[in-house]
């Protein structure tokens, strides 16, 4: 079976005032559908850059990025946006919910913008997702009325809104206390158990046995891969 995510010889360099800073160097990566993968590394190791490439938020300078049978470097900005909306769900460290929309509307908004699911299903699906993240009672609350953990749960529900194959999370528990972080991890696991491919970026110490792959980055290179 062809891998869901396939990266080969990927390079990415940022231009800084002091000169070019390589973020990813000759990176190869392969992820199968349904895997739970963790990308770790110290600050500046290139984890977030890798996640941005996987999400189609950024493009490599060279190399292949093939995800869900699509070569991302061949897509323009508009095509990438469409692809992203249909195949990828992203969760950020700082939630980035729309402050002017309620919890339920944040999920509905993601659906209406991408519009890849039948419209009649939007409301039921959004309510069901809220129930899955345990926040059905707070559907009509605005983000500033919710705690950090609750906001992150809404962000996860929003990421799942268009039923993506891949769920990407950038330090999803980095801004939360240990107990709430644990709850968020459990939530991710529940989505993984339902068949989603889950790729998480973290700098926390992790239990490698709980994941299908643990990729450690140092200076933009994969230094270890544990299956």
């Amino acid at each position: 079976m062809a891998p869901l995510v396939h990266l080969a010889r990927v390079n990415k360099t940022y231009q800084a005032l002091a000169g070019p800073v390589p973020a990813l160097q000759q990176l190869d990566l392969s992820i199968k559908a349904g895997e739970h993968v963790v990308i770790t590394g110290k600050s500046g190791s290139g984890k977030s850059t890798l996640l941005n490439l996987l999400a189609g938020l950024d493009q490599p300078d060279s190399g292949e990025v093939n995800i869900v049978n699509t070569s991302l470097p061949e897509l323009n900005e508009a095509e990438l946006a469409l692809w992203r909306g249909q195949h990828v769900g992203i969760v950020f460290q700082f939630y980035h919910l729309f402050p002017t929309l309620t919890a339920l509307d944040n999920i509905l908004f993601a659906m209406e913008l991408v519009n890849c699911l039948p419209k009649v299903e939007h409301q039921d699906r959004a309510e069901s997702l809220l129930e899955q993240v345990g926040l059905a009672a707070k559907a009509n609350k605005f983000p500033n009325e919710l705690s950090g953990g609750e906001q992150q749960r809404i962000a996860i529900a929003r990421a799942m809104a268009n039923d993506p194959l891949i769920l990407l999370a950038d330090e999803p528990t980095g801004n939360l206390d240990t107990h709430t972080g644990q709850q968020i991890k459990q939530l991710f696991s529940s989505f993984h158990q339902r068949g989603k491919t889950l790729i998480t970026v973290t700098h926390e110490t992790i239990n490698a046995s709980a994941y299908d792959q643990v990729i450690t980055l140092v200076d933009g290179r994969i230094v270890s891969k544990a299956d």
Binding site: L57, L82, W83, G85, F109, A110, R158
Partner: peptide
């Protein structure tokens, strides 16, 4: 940031 988020969610320009 909001515009960036809209794009991240798959919204075209």
């Amino acid at each position: 940031k909001e515009i960036g988020m809209l794009k991240a969610l798959g919204t075209g320009a």
